[in-house]
Design a protein around this nucleic acid. Structure first.
Lengths: 347, 347
DNA sequence: TGTTAGCACTCATTTTGAAGGAGTGCTAAC
DNA sequence: GTTAGCACTCCTTCAAAATGAGTGCTAACA
């Protein structure tokens, strides 16, 4: 399995992939013989191509057509062949920064920008705040039978919830509960606050067991709200229509559905985030992707950090012949820019 | 312009529209002569169709093809011809209700359900809380230089924001501000709380002008946050691929983009909500729609209410030959169900 | 006067076949 | 090991021909 390719074979493979990226058409031996600086005839190229086909790096759609790269070919390209390109970083910053104040907007804009920069489809996940600690918690009476619970985390994410009571709760009790909650929970990592802990608090609070229990349960719910479902913004899904190999009706339908549903994208993001060694950029080629509808696509993802344990994922989805260099570059740049923007925002 | 059509012409027009809805193909005279209970020959139908063409109710794509309904034809159909159908209401309720607790989830699910029920694309807007009154407002210290502002409206929508301070603010000032804010603003409609009012409060608060001003501005921003941009959920955009007249590449791209961007959908919703007499169901046929990319579609919208001035819009987007009866039915049902669900939730 | 049958005509769609062309694989020669 | 040459495959394109749905018109009929 671990064949070593000759330099010439590598050059030819690379030329095939590059040409195919541009044209989307199978590429023939004559094209390559002119394209490369190898100065060999098309017949020679043909022999080499025949070998590459046997080795599984390229594929012939039908007998008398040129070759197109296989997943294995792309993989080699991504892993070895595309090293040298000089990074011509786009200036994302000014565009992104222009007085957007809310994280959501920045993320949406980032997805949009990336899509228009690359001409592929993009997605970006709203960072989860796993690992973040509780900074502040408060119950306030809103009206007779209503409280509002407000939870602030270290990373300044705020959650809240209205709590409807069955019976009234006096100010003193509320005060006591606030004290109880803050002394016991502040500084704890969000995911460590579990039901057992809440149960213990309930005991400690004792007195008005009925209402207090309701309230504490609600507080717990507020803390953990949306823990499992992840928000994802997408952009440029229609860019995929530009690539004929993806835009026949059934494929397009499936792809666009995937982008509309977002569930599968979320799963992918979760998988990436769960990866312990998730610092780098990950490339899924064709069937390597966990999303089956994307078997004809490649997916490139990067994770970005907001400090304090908040990580999100950016992804680019395009045809297998996507311009990997450019995509990786863009992702790297965006990753850095997002880091800067958010780090700055979080004082 | 106000021609009166003979009964027979109406019947023929209706038959044409119905048949065209099913097949999507131009319908010819022979088909109609067999389809209707008129028992007239195709030649007679041809004469009538010729008249209808002259009157602009139907259109001939090319000389030797059948006829398809024009926008005017559909309009007549929607306004007059589809009255009689018996309403076979789908049982949305159980499906929607299954323990979803958050409004967003209910809305997302409603969009999804409607899309799968109708086989068209759907959208639903998160209700705006215009007209709602402020119920409760509170500033709390989160840490040394951070406050959190929490605003609760009558309809239990909660907004919050972290406020970063330049200098510390003592507990007494915070208390005073809370009192000031609550006594002055509570009970006021959200949109009546304007900058002038905030300016007056600033004066009243006087003392620590610098920090206090910052805080009050932030509070104002919290109250009005997102006032202008409207969240919209969509579902089933890919359903539109099922209709050949919409699924050629350029049209499909435009349509899907519209659904992805959502901005134009939001504009449409705003327009609908601004409509004083917005209780009913509105049908936009082809170019009647304010969204230009939907000139080959019809858009049917309904507004639903959550009481206390919160109104949202549900929309169905399909080909012009959409099954209007079914769509209108579904919308009506969903409208009622949403009313019930939310009214119940809001105690 | 309204309805109908019949027929010629139109025009989009489908089918067919031929021509063209890109590309391969193989062989033989260098 | 490299190259030129050539037969062969098979996709694509194009135009012509066949098909067929549907119309408009006319003439006959009730």
């Amino acid at each position: 399995m671990e064949e070593v390719l000759s330099d010439r074979k590598k050059k030819i493979l690379k030329a095939i992939i590059k040409t195919y990226m541009e044209t989307g058409e199978p590429v023939g031996s004559r094209t390559i013989s002119k394209y490369t600086d190898l100065n060999v005839s098309s017949a020679t190229i043909r022999n080499e191509m025949s070998d590459l086909t046997d080795l599984g790096y390229i594929v012939q759609p039908h007998t008398s057509a040129g070759r197109i790269p296989s997943d294995k070919g792309y993989r080699l390209y991504v892993d070895e062949l595309m090293k040298e390109k000089e990074s011509e970083v786009a200036e994302l910053r000014e565009l992104v920064l222009e007085k957007t104040d809310k994280m959501e907007k920045v993320l949406k804009q980032a997805a949009k920008l990336l899509a228009s920069n690359t001409n592929y489809a993009t997605m970006i996940s709203v960072p989860q705040y796993s690992g973040s600690r509780l900074k502040f918690i408060q119950l306030s009476r809103v009206s007779g039978l209503q409280l509002v619970a407000v939870v602030v985390c270290e990373n300044n994410v705020v959650r809240n919830q209205i709590i409807n009571l069955d019976e009234e709760m006096d100010d003193e009790t509320i005060l006591k509960l606030n004290l109880l909650l803050n002394t016991n929970l502040n500084g704890l990592p969000i995911q460590d606050i579990n039901l057992g802990m809440i149960a213990r608090l309930k005991e400690q609070a004792g007195i008005h067991s009925g209402v207090v229990a309701t309230v504490l349960d609600a507080v717990a719910a507020t803390i953990h709200v949306d823990e499992e479902d992840m928000e994802i913004y997408t952009s440029g899904a229609t860019n995929l229509f530009k690539y004929p190999e993806l835009s026949d009706k059934s494929k397009a339908t499936e792809l666009i559905s995937t982008f509309e549903e977002k569930q599968q994208l979320a799963d992918l993001v979760k998988e990436r985030l769960a990866d312990t060694d998730n610092t780098g950029i990950q490339v899924y080629i064709g069937n390597e992707s966990p999303i089956k509808t994307m078997k004809d696509c490649s997916v490139v993802t990067a994770t970005y950090e907001l400090g304090e344990g908040m990580t999100g994922t950016i992804g680019i989805i395009g045809p297998k012949r996507m311009d990997y260099e450019n995509v990786v570059d863009n992702l790297k740049t965006l990753k850095v820019e997002l880091d800067k923007i958010f780090r700055k925002k979080l004082e």
